[in-house]
Design a binder for these strands. Structure first.
Lengths: 257, 257
DNA sequence: CTGCTCAGCTTGTTGGTACAAGCTGATGCA
DNA sequence: TGCATCAGCTTGTACCAACAAGCTGAGCAG
């Protein structure tokens, strides 16, 4: 007989009931005091069980309101379609993506110059501490924080393309602007990782407990060397990244059905 | 004056000290009772703070031992190089990948036939509930659980390629076996998501609290239709997925330096 | 009818206690 | 020497109590 601790039993029962649909997304769970009676446990024990489910990302709590079952409609991000010359700019892709989903995009933007961290310098193949230009974007969908995007450009590149270091949008898109100045991006290397958010990330993305962030690092290359590095953070529960590789005519043919 | 709750202060101070390097990866934190004295807080409060750091994936605890700062060496997974005819089988890629990193691969394997879930049926473009063959792999590196991989084949495909439904490896690789029977995989569609593990996943991957899983769903297509769907789960803290897109000669040229 | 206050619900924070259970090293016996 | 035991550390589980703070609806004052 493998006796589980009581707080785990509480979590297990509630988890199964949520999976069953007894508590559909958006529904409120019974209050802590009700659960105390139901499971004949102290408040702390019930809270321990509930906090397990919170950290699994299944439910969330708010003071005064109670515990609510989270819903998760995911947003699809087609990463293999971004940033070619015909469909040039990240910002554009974001705007069209969001707008075509019938939602409202909104972003804040800033530019700064700072020494490259080891991580960035490594990817840009420059010496750590070298100055780099950071173009930073904080994106919202329907006023809900969606992603942060930090793009770093090495200083040698900025010397010949000074508008990168100026605040404000580059209307034609950075990729096109660079191409016009002889810097053509011909390939990129993507890295995708997941982890729990830092407090800073949790604040920017308004992430509650139990929600990981997706980290997407894209390093763009010209034929000669790396020209930029973009680090994007997403809420893991609301986003999914897609890559199309090879011939997918079979997929797109059947899609409209 | 924005007074943070005491347990958050505890977490913030320790988090900064960990980031500072006061407690390097592998080091043990002071015990709960020491922290009680240092922060003049009750044991519950200290534990609350520590559990925050645990759920951020920064530290882990074990009964009798204490709290330890986690290290995270990541394993790189080049997803855009898998599964073409020259380098055919997932299993092969895993074995060579792991062996070339100087580590020891080990896997368990099983085959079963079961009705397709909605998720699988949708991707394989068959009716939900149709029979599908599941080939399931549980992979270890140096006896540490690394990933679970479930590949589903639609029954119409299995009819013409019966070895898929038989237990035991297909030596030449499933991709090559299928190609020999006229089913050529010409493209695939990848979806990558992150979330907190289910208890089942946490058990299989021996994941502690605060570690998300990376979910990699790859649907393979012939020129006509989807032929398989592979769902792989990884420990998010130990793995990173890579995609190479376009021309990356600049990257590989400089790599050996 | 409008708008405010407040009782009464909810969860959040902090303190306390007690015992269970896992680990380690010292002690002491054979 | 070698092995078993156990004291004394660690975290894990479970209980209790009290007050803070956020939310909602009832009910009262204007």
């Amino acid at each position: 007989m493998n006796k589980q601790p009581k707080y785990r039993q509480v979590a297990d029962v509630l988890r199964r009931e949520i999976a069953n649909g007894d508590f559909p997304p958006g529904a409120r769970l019974p209050s802590e005091s009700e659960l105390q009676q139901r499971f004949d446990a102290s408040r702390n024990t019930v809270r321990n069980g509930l906090s397990l489910l919170v950290s699994e990302g299944l439910i969330s709590s708010s003071q005064g309101l109670g515990y609510e079952v989270k819903s998760h409609e995911v947003f699809e991000l087609n990463a293999s379609k971004f940033e070619n010359l015909n469909f040039p700019q990240n910002g554009d892709a974001y705007n069209t993506n969001v707008t075509s989903a019938g939602r409202r995009p909104h972003q804040t933007f800033r530019v700064e110059m700072l020494p490259a961290s080891e991580e960035i310098a490594d990817r840009l193949k420059v010496t750590a501490g070298t100055k780099a230009v950071l173009r930073f974007c904080h994106r919202y969908v329907d006023d809900v924080p969606w992603s942060t995007q930090a793009t770093y450009y090495p200083s040698w590149l900025v010397d010949g393309s000074p508008r990168l270091a100026e605040p404000g949008d580059i209307e034609e898109g950075t990729t096109r602007y660079l191409a016009a100045r002889g810097i053509e991006q011909v390939g990129y290397f993507d890295e995708i990782a997941a982890r729990m958010p830092t407090p800073e990330e949790a604040r920017l993305l308004e992430i509650g407990a139990g929600v990981p962030v997706l980290l997407w690092t894209r390093t763009g290359y010209s034929a000669e060397r790396p020209i930029r590095c973009t680090i994007t953070t997403f809420r893991g529960d609301l986003n999914r990244m897609n890559y199309e590789i090879g011939d997918l005519t079979a997929r797109s043919e059947n899609e409209p059905q």
